[in-house]
Design a binder for these strands. Sequence first.
DNA 1: AAAGTAATTAGGTAATTGCTTAATTAATGA
DNA 2: TCATTAATTAAGCAATTACCTAATTACTTT
Lengths: 120, 120
Amino acid sequence: MEDETFDIAGGSSVGAAQRVFHALSSAPRRKILAYLSASGLTAGEIADRFSMSKPAVSQHLSVLETAGLIRREKQGQFVHYSLIENNLVNTLNGFVQEVCPVGRPIKKESQARARVKEAP
Amino acid sequence: MEDETFDIAGGSSVGAAQRVFHALSSAPRRKILAYLSASGLTAGEIADRFSMSKPAVSQHLSVLETAGLIRREKQGQFVHYSLIENNLVNTLNGFVQEVCPVGRPIKKESQARARVKEAP
DNA sequence: AAAGTAATTAGGTAATTGCTTAATTAATGA
DNA sequence: TCATTAATTAAGCAATTACCTAATTACTTT
């Protein structure tokens, strides 16, 4: 596991958790993630769902991609975006674990459930 | 349950989820939450753990309090801060649920475990 | 009451963010 | 090849953020 104790103060470089939390701090970006949770969409389809300009949406997509929360796939002249679920859940879960004792049992349950799925 | 579909676009006022995510977007603030997860601390004790000025830390504490993530309790000339665990976990869990199908079983497990604790 | 300590508020500044419009790159189809 | 469509990059601007130092408020101690 990559323990960076979530990017605390001193470090000069910007860590992965910092990028994820920064990405999540914007309502439009969280809305984009919600759209993508239902299905992959092109940049244009995403932009259509907002009242802001296309370049603005494009920037939000770029922030989300840099954070490793979505993936970009060029198909002809379109760019398809889709959610990377793991990175989101792992970052939030890792954080909750460190901050909040309540989080720990949840993770254990989740692992137990995963094992059951592997060998039912 | 308070369903604001996490503060999407249109709304003029700033919603609760937005405040939480904004609060979490800062590394020093996440660090404060981590400190408080171990034990309550006074404003001064928190400030001592950072290299930035005391007023700067005070502002971070204020952001966290406004987001409902920590509570302030004045005791004599000291101000004691402590974590409000529920709000953090609920907001993140609520978000993961909406964005990420993977999240749903986690919440069900969590609720089941809660029921067991209520009536063991 | 005066001095000391804890914490916040006030005021100011440099850097960042979130948008805009205009320009550019890239793929498609007439 | 030339026009159209999709998307991004570039340039610029107003608003916000994150910090600082100085001043203030509120307790405590002598």
